[in-house]
Amino acid sequence: MIRKTAYMGLFLATALILSYVESLIPFYFGIPGVKLGLANLAVLFALYRYGWKEALLLNIMRVLLAGFLFGSLFTIIYSLAGAAASFAVMCILKRLGSFSIMGISMAGGVSHNVGQILVAYLVTQTPGVAFYLPILLAAGLITGLLIGMAAKKVLNLKGAFKNQ
């Protein structure tokens, strides 16, 4: 239990560092919402190594902390929406058992973007926010695949994170 708590702290720190790294990369395509989602790497890892409860806790904590550190109250609400949508979809698909970590991560990336568009619609009351939906769908797929491949590599590391 103590060991697990320590590891959870470690993963939270990792997620925060990844959020920070992401905020440093000038990765901007002129369309809001297209980003790598590096912090999801830590969430995926926790989801596979522990379970949904631990991953959920990690997810909420990293959104709140990263929001207070690098964003504002507004960005917290916005990223919570994306994180919640993506997390719910990833958990359900993982339970189904018919997707690999890449498929789950892709579904997560796509639903993250869809969730954010829905919130943007609720905030602005303008259906026009859906204009970039096709691009955001494709972008979520690609970034999700990249993050899924990275998470798979980390999970496959022999000797790392054993005996927890």
């Binding site: 997707f99 690999s100 797929l141």
Partner: peptide
């Protein structure tokens, strides 16, 4: 944990949706 058929189906479905939209 290799990429599975369902992963590819999912990716194709999303791509098809994106392209048709």
């Amino acid at each position: 944990m290799k990429i599975r058929k369902n992963d590819i189906r999912l990716a194709l479905a999303v791509l098809a949706a994106a392209l048709s939209l």
